[in-house]
């Protein structure tokens, strides 16, 4: 077995999911699968960070409601966001009041928290666990880049941090629900990329190495999957990943399996430049669109690869490169 590849014999299921998004995400191509779209990114709170927290709480609530559960029946709550010290998730965890671990894998948090939840379920320690991630455009932008109203020119490679929270309810295996068969915890890749407005190029190598690692560890090929979906490489990062895979021997036909949530998120809208990014991007795509596809039976086996750029504003200003990571989960449906 290859390093980092985990097989779950009990096949924990994704019982339900809740996805809440901000007002701009109305324009997403995936909008019909989102559970709740806010009219205001503050969600009637005073600050963006509080709005962020409410969004997480509501996503968790929706996921529980779908299975007619209350937060008391929850065994674990695992998640994270991109704000310093993940305070929105921490405050939301205080409201949800179940055992909690905060996860930080930048935008790969959506899958890394699902992996931990699946492991806890596999161990028999958890009946119901909520796992997911969230991001809030205004709160993230001011922390990683400039104030929201600052008129800086962004290059065509820049991505738009989405306002979205996606949480999945992970439980013991249940027939008729998508289940998590395997996962891969990725290695940190650092290809000396340093442009914070070009995350796609920084993250593509991480996605590449995790996909290779997973396929090798599981003894599979790309044909075994209906789709291999990366989190938020965007419109520039995705072609780079495809080129890397092509050089590794994939055919054009096989490459059609590879898609990216961030690149598709806002369609062709040029206002969003290279597409969507943020922890909430992969979470809201995986836990809405992809789950719906699995449940409808249109897809049988998918590999969800969330990619994260592990930078901080400080490391960028100190001229350090951007290390990146990607975590994958293999979800199947009978």
């Amino acid at each position: 077995m290859d390093k980092g590849v985990i097989y779950f014999p009990s096949k924990p299921s994704i019982l339900a999911a809740g996805v809440v998004v901000g007002p701009l995400e109305k324009r997403s191509v995936f909008v019909q699968n989102f559970d709740l779209v806010y009219d205001d990114e503050l969600a009637d709170q005073k600050t963006n960070e509080q709005g962020h927290q409410i969004m997480i709480e509501e996503a968790a609530q929706i996921a529980l409601q779908k299975k007619k559960l209350t937060k008391d029946s929850l065994d674990f709550f695992i998640g994270g966001d991109l704000v310093n010290q993940m305070t929105p998730t921490n405050f939301a965890a205080a409201t949800i009041a179940s055992p909690f671990i905060g996860m930080y894998s930048a935008c790969a948090t959506s899958t890394s928290s699902v992996i931990i939840a699946s492991l806890l379920t596999e161990l028999g320690g958890s009946q119901y666990a909520l796992a997911g991630a969230a991001s809030h455009h205004n709160a993230i932008e001011r922390q990683f880049r400039y104030p929201v109203d600052y008129g800086g020119q962004k290059p065509a490679t820049a991505q738009w941090t989405v306002t979205a929270a996606g949480y999945a309810l992970i439980g013991k295996h249940q027939e008729g629900e998508p289940c998590i068969e395997a996962a891969t915890i990725g290695k940190v890749a650092d290809f000396q990329q340093s442009d914070p407005f070009h995350m796609g190029a920084a993250m593509a190598p991480a996605a590449f190495s995790t996909i290779q690692q997973h396929l090798k560890g599981r003894g599979q090929t790309v044909q075994d999957y209906d789709v291999i979906m990366t989190g938020d490489l965007g419109k520039v990062g995705l072609p780079i990943l495809k080129e890397m895979l092509r050089q590794a021997g994939l055919t054009t036909k096989q490459l059609e399996t590879v898609r990216d949530g961030g690149a598709e998120y806002y369609g062709d809208n040029p206002l969003f430049l290279a597409g969507a990014s943020g922890a909430g991007c992969s979470a809201s795509v995986f836990f809405s669109e992809i789950l719906a596809e699995l449940k409808s039976g249109r897809m049988k086996r998918v590999l969800l690869v969330a990619t994260g750029a592990l930078l901080s504003p400080l490391s960028v200003q100190q001229n350090q490169s951007i290390p990146t990571v990607a975590h994958a989960i293999e979800v199947t449906m009978k």
């Binding site: 104030p147 929201v148 109203d149 600052y150 008129g151 800086g152 020119q153």
Partner: peptide
């Protein structure tokens, strides 16, 4: 102003209005 900035680049950043934008956006944000 951020839309003007995305279109104009330095054209909107270099005039004193860009300086004002940097100050005012930071004030509003914080």
């Amino acid at each position: 102003y951020k839309k003007l900035g995305q279109f104009g680049g330095a054209g909107s950043a270099v005039p004193v209005t860009g300086f004002g934008n940097a100050v005012i956006s930071a004030a509003i944000e914080h």
